[in-house]
Write a protein that binds this DNA or RNA. Structure first.
Lengths: 244, 244
DNA sequence: CAGTGGTCTAGACCACGGG
DNA sequence: CCGTGGTCTAGACCACTGG
């Protein structure tokens, strides 16, 4: 029978400590994304708690989007899928059909994080990071340009990956090449005007309205893994939200 | 002992039917916003189910934002509070302090809904609605202008309410004057450019960038109560979001 | 102090998915 | 068919709130 870590406040509800223990096993890579975790009954026996308590802990993780449950099949560590994360904000349809974007790496270098990216990543402004500049296109038209900062040495291997590998989604690449898994992200959206460089990349005029999206992506352990600043033409901006 | 409605599919889980029954009592006005609902044990006895089933039903309603629970106090029907709903999107601070906006009614008339508002409200384009145009200001500066459509005859009394009453929040006014309660809303956000009328109202130049927010507000029974289209200067647009 | 929701347990049976 | 998660029950005790 396993024991819960001692560190967590003993006054915390049992199901909370259990939830944290489960999250830890995911963060440590013991339970891998896409794979099933042990059945409820087994976990209950392992930790010596009631089934209902395990269920409540698991429910919490489902709530947080860390895992999925499927009746009759099992409970699975969720593979974060940001396929359409940025494109929730920008129209990218043609003839009513959503188009899959392609990516092109414009630049890649190692350098200082600077204050903005450094603070977001929990690093000093002088810390070395890997900088990527990427353009994403739909049907040959530029849609969004990203400046991305990745901490070193965790992402060092990406400095040697062929540029062609950056054509698709980046997060699967992070996982494949650098063993870094993104669990969630936070974004800030604001209006801006294109500077000369951004305008040229997007194929619009300098000073034209753009939407700026600043994103910080976090791993399963809560650490910041990636900072990015994206620009897209304001004309294509579109977003839906439910409020209560 | 109360009975669950017969109509809902008997194959639905008990806690689901129970949840619907509770939602119905809120929609019918039997359980009023701000008031406490009966304690769990009482509900369990009334319906002849276990306490855990009642808890699960209530949890679902909490999830949906219809009610709030507070340990030691009770379970309360949530009063929808959209105090800052629009202002989550626009900066309205001065010296770092958030400012409370004031409202001014610019126009009020009865007329056809038109296709856009009509469709949103589930009415024909020819249906009569009450149209409001309202300007919201912060520190004397125009921030947002709203065009609002309200179905008739439900909101007829608002045609005779003194314009000064539209200075604050509208939803409490709807509740007070027309007995219409807003439970939730859906919004669509997009970029646009100010037409002559909007520009003048916002005190900006024609063709200047604006953010357009289209909102449909729903009552506790799920019916559309209000359609509104708001414009604010894009320069002040700012929004945060968590994604996973 | 009494009453409320919050936690935890133990166990029965159902519904779904895949071999 | 078996193993999984899903539903439901019954009851004990804890923790918070307000008078």
């Amino acid at each position: 029978m396993l024991h819960l870590p001692d560190a967590p406040d003993q006054r915390l509800p049992l199901y909370q400590r259990l939830k944290d223990a489960f999250a830890g096993r995911i963060a440590q890579g013991e339970w891998r994304p896409g794979a099933a975790i042990p059945p409820e009954g087994e976990l209950a026996a392992e930790y010596g708690v009631a089934l209902g308590t395990v269920r409540k802990a698991i429910e919490g993780l489902v709530q947080e989007g860390l895992i999925d449950r499927r009746q009759g099949r099992g409970t699975f560590v969720r593979k974060a899928d940001f396929t359409n994360a940025l494109f929730r904000f920008f129209r990218h349809t043609q003839d009513g059909q959503p188009m899959r974007p392609t990516g092109r790496l414009l630049a890649r270098r190692t350098g200082k994080a600077g204050t903005r990216a450094g603070q977001a990543l929990g690093l000093s402004a002088d810390a070395q990071v890997l900088w990527l500049t990427r353009l994403r296109l739909v049907a040959g038209e530029p849609l969004v340009v990203d400046d991305i900062a990745l901490p070193l040495p965790a992402f060092a291997v990406l400095a040697d990956v062929p540029p062609a590998d950056f054509g698709g989604l980046l997060y699967p690449l992070y996982e494949r090449a650098a063993a870094q898994m993104v669990a969630r992200a936070r974004e800030h959206i604001a209006f801006a005007r294109a500077d000369a460089v951004t305008a040229k990349r997007l194929g619009i005029g300098e000073g034209e309205p753009v939407i700026a999206i600043e994103r910080i992506a976090f791993g399963y352990d809560g650490a910041a893994l990636e900072w990015r600043l994206s620009y897209g033409s304001a004309e294509r901006f579109s977003y839906d939200i439910e409020i209560r």
